[in-house]
Simulated scan of single mutants.
Amino acid sequence: MQLPLEYFPSQITGENYLKITNNFGFSHYFINSLIVSITTTLLIIVIAIMGGYAVSRYKFRGKKGFMLLLLLTQMLPGVVILIPLFSIFNKLGLINNLGSLVITYTAINLPFCLIMMSGFFSSLPPTLEEAAMIDGCSRWRAIFTIIVPAIMPGVVSSGAFAFVNAWNEFIFSLNFINQSSKFTLPIGLSMMKGEFTVNYGGLAAGTIISLVPVLLIFCYIQKYLVKGLAAGAVKG
């Protein structure tokens, strides 16, 4: 913002980090985003595993049409369903409730994760769970003790996709939440930009902090992502 341009700060300080954590309610925004993102991710993983298994293993009328419908839902922009969802949640008393965000994010991200999980299930032969069931396992136990560990890269990829999308979402949280104590991180950061002034220091510090959970998640799951990329490789 100044000329001549300085690429490196003349004085390094952590004052902006202290200000946003103490004065701007940043910790509340961070916790709210964690609650919404983690809950959404867990719901999507459980439902996507069950739905992906059913789509992959069972034959039923309209299966291709159902998969096509799931794909078509991903082509709709979020603003198309914004007003109907707001009307529904308003009648249910879920405005200014984090549950409305969890429901919305789950519904939006579930179709893609379900398609992804069905692909991973299809890569495994049905004889795996059949052999486990012959040895005395129930179908549920065979799925969660034999099949799911074998497709863990797919489970992790679906969970990461759901978490990042829920963590970064802005439009729905802006319209469904108007109490500052329930703001998520993207909304909290946007509040630092006023009509005439912008808190550049706080905005930059908050952005760096908001990147930390995503970076930690991908550092932890990178081994699973590599396994997923190599899942189709020739094995000998």
Rank of each mutant, 00 (worst) to 15 (best):
L94K: 00
I83N: 06
A233Y: 06
G62R: 12
V198K: 12
V148Q: 03
T184V: 11
V148E: 06
I83G: 00
Q74I: 00
S181M: 11
V102Q: 09
G14C: 12
S173H: 02
I81V: 09
P4M: 07
L229N: 01
V36M: 07
L76C: 03
L76A: 13
A162L: 07
F121R: 07
S118T: 13
C113L: 04
G119C: 14
G228H: 01
S181R: 13
L124T: 08
K182W: 08
G25I: 02
I38F: 14
L211N: 01
I49R: 00
Y58H: 15
G136L: 02
F120Y: 15
I83Y: 12
I208N: 07
S210R: 07
G228W: 06
I47D: 02
F26N: 01
V156Y: 04
S100I: 07
T73E: 05
M1W: 07
I20P: 10
I45H: 05
L215N: 07
V55W: 01
T104S: 15
T21K: 06
M117C: 04
L68P: 01
R57V: 04
F26P: 01
I115G: 00
I108Y: 10
E6N: 14
E130Y: 04
G14V: 12
I187V: 13
A233T: 14
I35W: 04
L5W: 14
L85P: 00
A230G: 07
A160N: 04
Q2S: 10
L98P: 05
S157I: 03
G188N: 03
Y53M: 01
I134L: 11
T184K: 07
I31C: 07
F161E: 03
F120Q: 12
